[in-house]
Structure formats: structure tokens, C-alpha cells
Design a protein around this nucleic acid. Sequence first.
DNA 1: CGTTTCCTTGACTTAACTCAAGAGGAGTGG
DNA 2: CCACTCCTCTTGAGTTAAGTCAAGGAAACG
Lengths: 257, 257
Amino acid sequence: MPVQRDTSPAPTGHPLLARLQHYVRFTGEERLALEALSAGPALTVRQRRDLVREGDRPRGVILILDGWAFRYKTLEDGRRQIIAFLLPGDLCDAHGYIHRHLDHSIGAVTQVRYIEVPRERIEALAVLGPRLAQALWWDASVTASIQREWTINLGQRDAIERLAHLFCELVYRLRATGLAAGDRCDIPLTQTDLAEATGMTPVHVNRMVQDLRARGLIRWKGHDFEMLDLAGLCSVAMFNPGYLHLDHEGRLLDAAG
Amino acid sequence: MPVQRDTSPAPTGHPLLARLQHYVRFTGEERLALEALSAGPALTVRQRRDLVREGDRPRGVILILDGWAFRYKTLEDGRRQIIAFLLPGDLCDAHGYIHRHLDHSIGAVTQVRYIEVPRERIEALAVLGPRLAQALWWDASVTASIQREWTINLGQRDAIERLAHLFCELVYRLRATGLAAGDRCDIPLTQTDLAEATGMTPVHVNRMVQDLRARGLIRWKGHDFEMLDLAGLCSVAMFNPGYLHLDHEGRLLDAAG
DNA sequence: CGTTTCCTTGACTTAACTCAAGAGGAGTGG
DNA sequence: CCACTCCTCTTGAGTTAAGTCAAGGAAACG
């Protein structure tokens, strides 16, 4: 039996709050309201299972509390594309509230603890104050921006660039949620996951990972990932963090503690 | 001097309304409110100019009244990716209201007539009734869905499939706005545009277009496009229109007239 | 301690790119 | 009206990045 926390409380505080505070400065009341979101009964899926599946009727907005997941979609002939990675603190509208059926699935990489927040509770949040609504809008528009960046990644960058870009994005996003200590973090993905996200074969991903290692840009063994040369990796990837929009008033708050 | 309408009223009625009616059935009052959106002073850009540029401060939501445009983003070394096509009736949040700077540009293919709708007027719409809010949500979530589909397109499909898929999407979207008569429509794109949207070279796009023609799937001369075999093209592309979510209550209304 | 999953490497194939040059139109100006 | 330019489309020949197939090794799992 794997040694994994199962019934323990959220181990990283409140990842959503941690991230939203980069965008907007909250009052104590607002903070409590956000924390209350994750107070409901958490669900758990085992690693490599689906949280929700294409064709399901959406049950609410999913808030990832702990663990990694991804959105994906499958073509008729079995080819599979990972569309986005979902990290702790990610709110993922699954999708649009309104649609009858999901047009994609969400799968777990690791064991994932999450909450299905009924839409009413999200809407109720927004009523509490414009800052909360603003933060949620901000978050949604960052999600859209990331999706656009993936379009560029797949359309214009070659293999090493794509891979380097993905690593940069993941590290920046983990940092924003407090899940990266300096240049080190946990990346529980397999090279096959990376292949499905970057549109290449696992074999080629492997060669590119070796290449990044050989250039002294990254270290990656098991789940343990380290950026040895952030500037170098960004340069290879032509990574510009602007699209993550991590530059709002909240930054000040973040710097202060 | 080119012979182009310039100060004439919107030639296709209300493309936004035409499209939203596929999603939601409106009352007369709601319809008027939507039509009022395009009552403001329309702006015009000449073909191949930008409506807005990366780094600009967003001025509002853009509503395309007439003509084709696209979102795009440029890498440092000049490579350019078209991220989405914007057709008449498209509302494009440019972007997120909230951000200080746009993280991408919007360029015109043809001459484009459009309106910059202040965010307040969008919000005011939503207050008028839940159906309007619902329709706008629907629209936004379809946009997100299209963006996800592009990710798959670029990541998993090969050259002919990508191109076929793009043609299918455009035809379906034009139909939903009443801009395709049967299987014929206007596609004012160059093969270089298609190349920038599908992540290939113009030369290769050309070869693939020839291929689709040779297979008897499409006819395309100048701007005049015709699907000769919709089922065949969908099959080549593994196109499944579900992601466009054109299947709401409004469909009944549409069928009725 | 065996089994499965994941990573790694090598040899070969192929889809797509590059470079280059020519053809067809559309608009421009003499 | 014709010559000119510019832009887009087209075709061919050679190159390259990435895919395929196959097999061995190293972890991780149970």
C-alpha cells in the first residue's frame, strides 16, 4: 500500500487563496469566504483515474486542493492530447456551467483531492465584494491566456523549445502557489505525459530531456525537478512570463510576506 | 481606390444576435438590448492592419460587425501564430477587462467594421435578465472550447487533418452566423494565413489544399469556398462539431425560421 | 522478488521544411 | 491600354526534424 496522506487536512494551506493573493489584496472577510470554499467535503481520486469524463453532465466547478491533474481530449483513433495541467489551487470550470455535456475529460496524474463547488457558491462569492469577483475574473482570464500560449507552443516552437517552455510555465505556476522552493519543485509527470502535452512522441521527449540536461539547464530525477539555469531555460524556450499576468497589486502583499 | 463599402450600415443584420439565438431564445426586449450594442459608433480598420496590438491597454470588448480578423502572437524571432479567427458577430474579450496590457494582438484580414463595447454595457446587459447573461457565458465558453480544440489540432493532427479541421470549423461557425449559404461561403484568407494558423509553412499548406481539391472534398478559388463533400471532409479531419456547442434550445427557434 | 511501468539507446523511415524559381492575377502608373 | 510591380499560388529537388520500431535496463510497485 502506498504511503500517501489520505484523510489529512489540506497540507499546503489554501492553494487557491495563495495564488489569488498575487492578483488582488483581500480583506480578512474575503479571505475567510475563499477559505470556506475548500471547507466542503473533499473528494479523492487515485492516481491515473479520471475526475470527470467527456460526455458527463458537469456538476460544478472543480477546485484542486492537492495533487496534479490534466484536461485531455481523445481523438476517435485513440490519439490523446493533454490540453492543460491543473495544479493545486486551480479552479477549473468544467465547463461553462451551462453545457449539457463536457467536451473533454479531466484525469489525475497523482492522487488528487478536490472539491466540486456548486456554481451558486461561486456566484455568492462574487456578491461579497468586487475584489473577489475581480480575482475570479483574473484567474479565468489567465487560464484562457495559458491556453492561447499553448497554441503558440504547439504551432511555432520546435521540440526543445516546447519542452523548455512547458517546464518554465510549470515552475512559474508552482511558485505562484507556493509549491516551488526556489528553483526546485516536484514534477510528478512521466515523459509520456509530457509527450501528450507537447504533441511529440515519448521517445523524442526523452531525447529532448537529455538535451536539456546535457546543456546544464535542468536536473530531473524521479519527481524531483530543479532548474539549474532559469534564464538559460527561458531563453531556449523564448519564455516570457507576461502571459501568466502575475503582476497585479497583490505582488506587493506577496513581497511583504 | 478599392471599391469597398465604408459608411454603409451593417450589411448582415445583427451577426451577434444571429449567433446567440442558436443558444438561447430571447424576448423582444432582450433582442433590442443586444441590437443596441451595435448601435454605437462603429470603427473601421483597413485590411491587413491591426485592431489592437500587444501591449495596448484594453479599451473594452470588441464586437466584430463585418469582416474577418484574427488574434495572433509573435515570438521574439518573428515567428507568428494565429491563435483564433474572429468572424462577424464574435465578441472578443480583449482581454479579461482587468489586465493592464494585452498579451496578444488582433489583426484584420479584410476591412473590418467593429465596435469597442465598454465593459459596463456588457455588465448592464447581464442585469437585464438571466437569459442574456447565460447567452454571453455560453458564447465565452464556446470560445474557450474552440481554443482547446486548436490545441488538439496542432498537437495531434497531421497536415491534411489540421487543414481539413480548420475548414470544417470555419464553415460551421459561418453557418451559425448565417454567413454560409449551404456549403458555400467566403473565405478571404491567404494560404499564408492558414499556414500561420495551422503551424505549417505556406508551401506545405499549398500542397495540402491541392490534396483536398484532388480528393474532391473542396473547391476554393479566390475567396469563393465550397465544401463538395462535407461528410468526407469531416471524416478526414476527425471533426466532431460537439465542441462548438451549437445544440441548445435556440436551435428550435432557428429551425422555425 | 517478480512484474510492470518508465526510461534509454540505436538504426531506419517519413512528414514536413527549405530554397529556388516560375506563373497567374490584381492593382498602379505612365 | 499596356507595362510594371507586387503578391499569392504553384511546382520541383534536396534537407532535416521528428516519428517508428525494437530491444535492453532501471526503477517502482505490490
